[in-house]
Amino acid sequence: MSETKPESNAFELSYVTTKEHCFKQNPNRPKSTNRRFKTAKQLATDETRYLQTKKLNIDTPTHLSIAAPPSLRPRKHYCDITGLEGRYKSPASSLRYHNVEIYQEVIKHLTPGVDQEYLSLRGANVVLK
């Protein structure tokens, strides 16, 4: 494939990034101490722990305190299948649906597990731990 394409210069492009950089010559640079890979979740816990150790005023904005509060407006319901207005709720799967057609054609015949997939779109699925 690469014969027909112009010559790959991936090596040069890569070299730009990986070569010795004249502006990055610090013999005293501390060895990367804490470069262990951490997931976003672990990092978030780290941040929470860090904030707990601080004696912060109640009005100090932190990563945690600026998260938006839950909505106080009445929630509108939407069909889990189509996204249209969802006036009805299936008692078996607690999926919301737009009309009887959606119920008859989709919800009644959902293979097990798919209902949870639909619910997971709005975070209402059952998560077993």
């Binding site: 950089h21 004249c22 502006f23 010559q25 610090n26 978030a44 941040e47 904005p61 990563h63 600026i66």
Partner: peptide, 23 residues
């Protein structure tokens, strides 16, 4: 960027998210 002393000789202005984490 070129450098003779092995350092980056420019001040840096860096963006961060609101209430950036310590990490």
């Amino acid at each position: 960027v070129t450098s003779e002393n092995g350092c980056l000789n420019n001040p840096i202005i860096m963006s961060e998210p609101p209430a950036a984490t310590f990490g």
